[in-house]
């Protein structure tokens, strides 16, 4: 039995300590907003925040999370997160939407540390997040838009 700090709540879970955090969130805690895409940290669909850092939850074992504060898409809040979600909605970024939880989490983390990102910052922060619908042009525009709304 371990206790995880998920979206501000202490969750006691009885799991194989090798189970990736992704599957603890999805299959044990029922938080299905975090997606499985590759299982090897190549697609970013499973991105969550661990103490604010964007992290691929498919590649972190449950037993290694410790006391880190886990934020999933269901628990995303704050100025950057809301700015990102609002911009995504205004610009109609999504298509199938499967990658977008991860995209939103990665973008929110970027704006936390880099409130006014250049295109190169966006490339660096977001190139680990695949979108097979290729909504990339709108993702880029929405990050810039979110940055503008955060300044306002």
């Amino acid at each position: 039995m371990i206790t995880l700090n998920v979206n501000g709540r202490a969750e006691a879970v009885d799991v194989d300590l090798q189970m990736p955090l992704l599957w603890v969130l999805r299959d044990v805690l029922g938080l299905t907003g975090t997606k499985y895409g590759c299982g090897i940290a190549q697609c970013g669909a499973c991105t969550v925040h661990l103490d604010g850092e964007p992290t691929r939850s498919c590649s972190v074992a449950a037993g290694d999370v410790g006391t880190a504060s886990i934020t999933t898409i269901e628990g995303l809040s704050g100025k950057a997160g809301e700015a990102v979600q609002g911009a995504w909605q205004r610009l109609n970024v999504v298509q199938c939407g499967y990658c977008q939880s991860g995209q939103v989490m990665a973008a929110a983390a970027l704006l936390q540390t880099t409130p006014n990102p250049k295109d190169a910052d966006i490339d660096a922060a977001m190139s680990g997040n695949l979108c097979r619908c290729a909504t990339y042009q709108r993702i880029r525009a929405a990050i810039h838009e979110a940055a503008r709304t955060m300044e306002a």
Partner: peptide
């Protein structure tokens, strides 16, 4: 016109088969 699925797909609420 905003897409009908924009909010659910940016908040993790959209349910796919895997969910």
């Amino acid at each position: 016109l905003p897409r009908l699925d924009s909010v659910d797909k940016t908040t993790g609420k959209q349910t796919f088969t895997l969910d």
